[in-house]
């Protein structure tokens, strides 16, 4: 009787716990992701009028009175569910569909942070926008595994010499 109990306990610990973790990670992760996307969409429409371009020189018809480097950076972690599914996907290859929203969130969030910081300081537009990404490792003791990704957006913010320049 006792061994039967211990065996079922072992079974629960071996299979039940990861399953519970997986479900928890899925529900919480989905909730956080939905909330984040909602916030991103709202802020994107608020900032839609703000010019952000990737030209590496300032467009000719802009005349700037001052400029500065602006950046926005975000670090997003993967949840356990995404990692497990991506791990399975890595066995056969193909689009890692669970990572795509993660990176999309990171890209858009970093852009928004860059724009918001520029606007807070009174800048009127940003050009030469670049995106950089880096992987944060060492989530496990052996140095393998991924803790999350960092996305960095940076560019040159300018203040226009006259308000007229903004709407040519």
């Amino acid at each position: 009787m006792e061994t039967g109990f211990l065996q079922s306990l072992e079974l629960i610990l071996n299979f039940g716990m990861p399953l519970i973790l997986l479900m928890m990670a899925y529900f919480i992760g989905t909730w956080i992701e939905r909330r984040h996307f909602r916030s991103i969409r709202n802020r994107e429409s608020e900032n839609a009028e703000f010019p952000v371009v990737s030209f590496d020189t300032m467009p000719d018809d802009w005349s700037a009175s001052s400029s500065t480097l602006v950046s926005g950076s975000v670090v997003v972690s993967l949840d356990y569910f995404k990692r497990v599914i991506a791990g399975l996907r890595s066995l056969v290859g193909g689009r890692i569909k669970t990572y795509e929203p993660l990176l999309d969130r990171a890209r858009r969030e970093s852009m928004l942070r860059m724009i918001e910081s520029a606007r807070r300081d009174g800048y009127d537009a940003i050009f030469n926008v670049r995106l950089e990404t880096s992987r944060l490792a060492n989530s496990r003791g052996d140095g393998k595994g991924t803790a999350g990704v960092e996305m960095l957006a940076f560019g040159t913010a300018v203040k226009f010499a006259s308000r007229f320049a903004r709407t040519p």
Binding site: Y26, T30, E44, S45, A48, E49, F50, P51, V53, P59, D61, F81, K82, I85, L88, R89, R95, K97, T98, E100, P101, L103, D104, R107, R108, A125, P168
Partner: peptide, 23 residues
């Protein structure tokens, strides 16, 4: 050059497949 504000379209960089379907 005119600056035309435009929102990024959804569903380009993110797959439509539901994560549970994928799993």
């Amino acid at each position: 050059m005119r600056f035309v504000p435009r929102q990024p379209r959804e569903g380009i960089n993110v797959s439509d497949t539901h994560p549970l379907v994928e799993a």
